[in-house]
Amino acid sequence: MLESLQVLRALASLMVVVFHLGAPLQRLGLIAPWPQSGAAGVDIFFVLSGFLMLVTTYGRTGYTASFYHKRLVRIAPLYWIVTTASLALLLLAPQLVKSGRAETWHIIASYLFLPARHPVLGTLEPLVVPGWTLNYEMFFYLLWGMALLLPQRQRLPAVSLAIAGLALLGIAAPGDNPFFAFYTSPIMLEFVFGLAIGLWYLKGPTIGRGWGWVLMGCGFVSLLSQGDVPPETRMLRWGIPAAMVVVGALVLERSRPVPRVGLLALLGDASYSLYLVHGMVLSAVGQVFVRLSPQLALQGPALYIACAVTAVGAAIVVSVVVHLLVERPLLRLMSEKRPARKAAPEGRS
């Protein structure tokens, strides 16, 4: 993994954590509106995903089955573990789950990476709410894996046309069916941005290092200065700035290797764990503060700051522990190549 992208993964995951921090703070009594721009961390992840899929599969042939296996091993095991933990909490201690209800199809769809309406929120989100992005990721992997059957020069155009066609279909004939509404969202074009960036990185012209800083700066300012954006314009208002950030980071990487920063590298490695577990950690810390707030000698801003720092710190610590003790061993275990079976001697079966 390029070091610049490790830093972006760390920053993007922290943006999402800060975005979701608003809910526990509001339960604690915060009245002021919480900034929504942290949700744009997801858009950075989508662009990064498109980039990495093109770069890591470029020039490979006969790779579709291996690609699907590697993507499933990378995404599914930890997600299923966290989903099972969320389901157990929902069934065994429903009073601790502020916005959940057990519904059979919603549970099944959560495990299968399929869109289903949340029984409480009404949105197309699984049991582990941030997992809605993984439903898009898996669909993109499905398309890209099929594209790998094509000649190299046809892959990017084929996937781009498929995703653009779905987006245009959703605009021309919008519908309420969860599958139709989900898979015709323009947000999937952000994967195409990443694919195009990957092709530029491998084959495109060099851009001056100074432009890298300009692109990153303008991209982050645009992302963080906007409030909540409607789904139909998210690809433009957050997707394009997210692509600028990724291009800027790669311009810097191309001109000079980005130095490794231990803490950011570790957080980049643990970004998937952080993305999956932070919701439960933030909720737990928030509930502790709600119960203890009458006894704490803190009020107003001091109370909110204490809760925010504790919650974000706890989310980071828990995610690193999960990454080191669960995610990494799982990846090693499931990526090991088993020795080929020896042929049985004649006369034995």
Rank of each mutant, 00 (worst) to 15 (best):
V73A: 09
P77K: 04
W80A: 13
W80R: 11
T84F: 12
T84N: 06
A85Q: 00
S86G: 14
A88P: 03
L89D: 02
L89G: 15
L90G: 13
L90K: 05
L91I: 09
L91A: 14
P94T: 04
P94Q: 01
L96A: 13
V97K: 08
V97H: 00
K98L: 14
K98G: 15
S99Y: 12
G100T: 03
A102T: 05
E103A: 13
T104Y: 04
T104E: 03
W105F: 14
H106A: 12
I107Q: 10
S110N: 00
V120P: 03
L121S: 10
G122N: 07
E125F: 00
V128L: 10
W132L: 05
W132N: 09
W132M: 07
T133Y: 07
L134T: 08
N135K: 03
N135S: 13
E137M: 00
M138Y: 06
F140A: 01
Y141I: 08
W144A: 06
W144T: 07
W144G: 02
G145D: 04
L148H: 10
L149V: 05
L150P: 12
L150D: 07
P151Q: 10
Q152H: 05
Q152T: 14
Q154N: 10
Q154S: 14
R155K: 09
R155L: 07
A158C: 11
S160C: 12
G170R: 09
G170K: 04
G170V: 06
A172R: 12
A173D: 13
P174N: 03
P174C: 05
D176T: 14
P178W: 01
F179L: 15
A181F: 00
A181E: 11
A181V: 00
Y183M: 04
